[in-house]
Design a protein around this nucleic acid. Structure first.
Length: 835
DNA sequence: GGTTCCCGCCAATCG
DNA sequence: CGATTGGCGGGAACC
């Protein structure tokens, strides 16, 4: 029967079902839910009964997680039959039944890292209620807020068309998701803080999606800067204050400036002053929490630090209970943010031991206005398979074990922390989430334009683009298949002499961020800054963009991960560590590139050794030579939807040479070319930044500097692309174009910076939930430290997620212990060549 | 034994 | 004044 069929099928192909949902899911959802009788809901917590609605959910929900057969589980659990509704009602009526239902797996973990297999499988097995009961009692995890949030998010499109106005009925959702309304408030409050939803009326929220997320984040970042959260965090971390010990007054003693009070007006505060209740609201806390990430150089915020800051601001008395409560709330918020793929759980190891923390994995460059990255990169939130994560994690673990290169240590000011590279994040798998067809179509339509894609590259900042003398030339050879994004990071922004003080610049900060460690270049969901208004088509395209992208940044031999980077607090030396790392990584990337053909990779041609080294060795640090910068390229494969489209951007190269402005520009400011894949065809394209290149004009976008070329109509898809900033070719670097034709298929790309040992990988949209926490070791000290030691290992690995399309041919990495999820595969690349 | 965080009481607010 | 929101923290699952 249907049920059975679904089960099997689903297991096998979990994803299929989803195509359409995106488009209308919102509506459907509502409709679907309609049957639920609101009246039934008792005022208080009536809802508890939950109908089992997953079934409903499945309808609309597309699963984002390709890999895990999640949905299936639901289905299995609930065979949907025509009588489903009835069933629900019944269950609602009878708690017992309800429970039983739950146990069955109503709540299956969408992505637990734990198992590859969902409970569902098991479900079938045990028939008796008892068995079921025992076997699958709904574990606590299955009822987690994060999971619930994923379900919630799955109901609505990340980037709804402007035309569709989706309203969310709390009651319906609660019923649909089988939870009490109270829980929905938790989710909605956080989403509201990011403006993904807004309350329209009693019991009604409007769904906005992620369209304005970049803008929101930018604002929060700005506020965070005003608040000097960064300083506060640094301070707190440094001192490792124990909560108990912590006295508010102390920080001043330390010279820590008072944080200016927030300008509440910018936040959602209803009224500026202390609204007792409002001030403590989850919404405000959520915004502040996000701000902390946005201003953090490391992009990692420990819960205790966040809690302390929040307590201080709220002016609560710093007692321990408050702290505990705050932390509890932060977990709630974090779970939602995790589901949104904005943060992920990690652990930081400090002297005191391991501390829970979260790392920002959301977009970081929105500040620059870099539109294009944003757009291109917008990724949908993805849910990941935990499995992979686990494996990765394990891998990490193993890595840890390994001795770190001594070299690293030097960097760290504090020997205390052995630096390891730990920061690995889940490798993500990113999921591909299905793109609504509509979106796809739209996308294709765009591409069809011949290239004129509306990618907006330009950021306002573009001026900076000035074609600086790019430093070293590099040449890249890229296979044609997918989308490429190349951008140069700024090699560092700091122009000579520029010092970044904390404040010195937001800009710099921004720049740094962008370049930041994580590589973050996740092209994430950002969209253009301003133009939210775009026609639907564009939006769709964006959604499209959500597709996974992958970025790989190999680390350079030595440094690595930096993620944890040291908080070098702002002031530090001229060279931002992160940038450096990045570059170095990039370098490595190229090596990789050859192998990686499949997904994307970044490569920078040359790296300055010196710089990289610097990182590792502080001593050198300033020495930075001016070596030119490295170019950094990001190669992104096009997500499935993008199929035909390739984007090539070249990083900017300007390193120091460039004026300050350059620094400001984050990666975006680079000349770029966007080509439809078709364009790439058989012909190799050679692009050199310096040269005007085949520029065609990108409409509107870039200033002259960045040539953007959309579409070259004629080319066959197969061609390879050769890019060189300056025109030099580097044999080594040149990645072999191993263009696997097959590769094309893969839709999902992840950006994953990989650190060598540590395997740092970040995925943009991460998996949301479930990924195992990564551990990072942070140094508290402000000193720039380089945490990770990355070995100069030559192998780089990155994960790929098989997109919905096929998965490319990748090599699996042998190293990893188990990584394996079929879903993801990791490639290992040996960097040997590069070196 | 620490971490994570579900659950739901109950108060502040809203309509 | 009942319903809606949502702060709060006990305590249990989880690791």
């Amino acid at each position: 029967m249907e049920v059975n069929c679904l089960t099997l099928k689903d297991l096998i192909n979990p994803r299929q079902p989803r195509l359409d949902f995106a488009i209308k899911d919102g509506e459907n959802a509502q409709k679907e839910n309609i049957f639920v009788d609101p009246s039934r809901m008792a005022p208080k917590t009536p809802i508890k009964n939950e109908p089992i609605d997953l079934s409903l959910q499945k309808i609309f929900t597309p699963e984002r997680n390709p890999i895990t057969p999640v949905k299936l589980a639901d289905k299995q659990a609930e065979p949907w039959t025509p009588t489903a509704n009835l069933k629900m009602l019944i269950s609602a009526a009878s708690p017992d039944i309800r429970d039983r239902e739950k146990k069955k797996g109503l709540f299956r973990p969408i992505e637990n890292k734990d198992n590859a297999f969902p409970d569902s499988l098991q479900l079938d097995v045990g028939d008796s209620a008892v068995d079921i009961f025992q076997k699958r009692r709904p574990s606590r995890k299955q009822k987690s807020l994060g999971l619930l949030c994923q379900k919630f998010l799955a109901r609505y499109p990340s980037y709804p068309l402007s035309t569709e106005k989706t309203t969310i009925s709390l009651d319906e959702v609660a019923v649909s998701l089988g939870v009490e309304r109270r829980r929905i408030y938790d989710i909605v409050n956080v989403l509201e803080s990011l403006h993904l939803v807004s309350r329209v009326a009693k019991n009604q929220y409007g769904w906005h999606g992620r369209h304005s997320l970049p803008k929101t984040l930018r604002n929060l970042q700005r506020l965070g800067e005003k608040q000097k959260y960064e300083e506060q965090m640094a301070h707190l971390q440094q001192r490792e204050l124990d909560l108990m010990d912590y006295r508010f007054g102390e920080r001043k003693k330390d010279g820590y400036p008072d944080p200016p009070l927030l300008d509440f007006s910018e936040l959602d505060y209803p009224s500026s002053s202390a609204n007792s209740r409002k001030d403590k609201s989850l919404r405000i806390m959520s915004q502040k929490f996000v701000m902390l990430f946005l201003v953090s150089k490391t992009k990692i915020v420990t819960l205790d630090v966040a809690a302390k800051i929040l307590i201080e601001e709220s002016q609560d008395t710093p007692d321990h209970s408050k702290f505990k409560t705050k932390v509890r709330r932060l977990y709630d918020i974090a779970n939602v943010l995790t589901s949104l793929a904005l943060i992920e759980k990690v652990h930081v190891t400090e002297e005191r031991g391991r501390k829970p923390a979260f790392k920002w994995i959301g977009p970081v460059d929105f500040s620059s206005g870099g539109g294009f990255t944003l757009e291109i990169g917008s990724l949908a939130p993805i849910y990941q398979q935990k499995i992979e994560n686990n494996s990765q994690e394990k891998a990490l673990e193993s890595n840890r074990v390994m001795p770190l290169p001594s070299s690293l240590d030097p960097t760290a000011p504090f020997p205390i922390h052995p630096v390891d590279s730990e920061y690995c994040v889940n490798p993500l798998a990113h999921q591909v989430f299905s793109v609504p067809q509509a979106d796809m179509q739209a996308l294709s339509a765009q591409s069809g334009l011949n290239g004129q894609v509306g990618v907006s590259l330009a950021a306002p900042d573009m001026e900076s683009l000035k074609p600086a003398p790019l430093a070293s030339p590099s040449l890249l050879y890229v296979p044609a298949t997918s989308l490429f994004m190349l951008y140069g990071s700024l090699s560092e922004g700091p122009a000579p002499g520029s010092e970044k003080d904390n404040r010195s610049s937001k800009v710099s900060a921004a720049a740094e961020q962008s370049s930041a460690p994580s590589v973050q270049k996740r092209l994430s969901e950002e969209r253009k800054p301003e133009g939210e208004e775009e026609p639907a088509t564009k939006r769709q395209s964006r959604d499209y963009e959500d597709g996974p992208l992958s970025l790989v940044m190999p680390k350079k031999p030595s440094d690595s991960t930096n993620i944890a980077s040291p908080k070098t607090l702002d002031k530090r030396g001229p060279v931002p560590l992160e940038d450096i790392h990045l570059t170095s990584q990039l370098c490595a990337a190229k090596e990789v590139s050859g192998k990686t053909t499949a997904n994307g990779f970044i490569s920078s041609e040359w790296v300055n050794p010196s710089r990289s080294t610097e990182i590792e060795k502080p001593s050198r640090d300033s020495g930075g030579t001016k070596e030119p910068c490295l170019l950094q390229y990001l190669y992104v494969q096009s997500p499935a939807g993008l199929n035909g489209f390739n984007v090539l951007l070249s990083g900017n190269q300007t390193p120091h040479a460039v004026g300050p402005s350059a620094g400001q520009l984050p990666s975006l400011s680079v000349p770029c070319m966007v080509l439809p894949s078709s364009a790439l065809g058989p012909f190799p394209i050679l692009y050199s930044p310096t040269m005007a290149g085949p520029v065609s004009s990108a409409p509107g976008t870039l200033p002259n500097t960045g040539p953007v070329n959309f579409g070259l109509p004629g080319f066959g898809s197969t061609a390879h692309l050769l890019i060189s900033p300056t025109a030099v070719v580097n044999p080594k670097s040149s990645t072999h174009p191993s263009p696997d034709p097959q590769l094309q298929g893969p839709c999902s790309l992840n950006l994953s910076p990989v650190m060598s040992r540590s395997h740092n990988v970040t995925h943009p949209e991460s998996p949301i939930y479930g990924g195992p926490p990564v551990s990072v070791k942070l140094q508290q000290s402000p000193v720039p430290v380089t945490p990770k030691s990355i070995q100069p290992t030559h192998c780089e690995t990155f994960f790929k997620t098989p997109g919905s399309l096929g998965d490319p041919v990748l090599r699996r990495e042998s190293k990893q212990p188990r990584n394996t999820s079929s879903a993801q595969r990791r490639l290992e690349i040996s960097s040997s060549g590069a070196d």
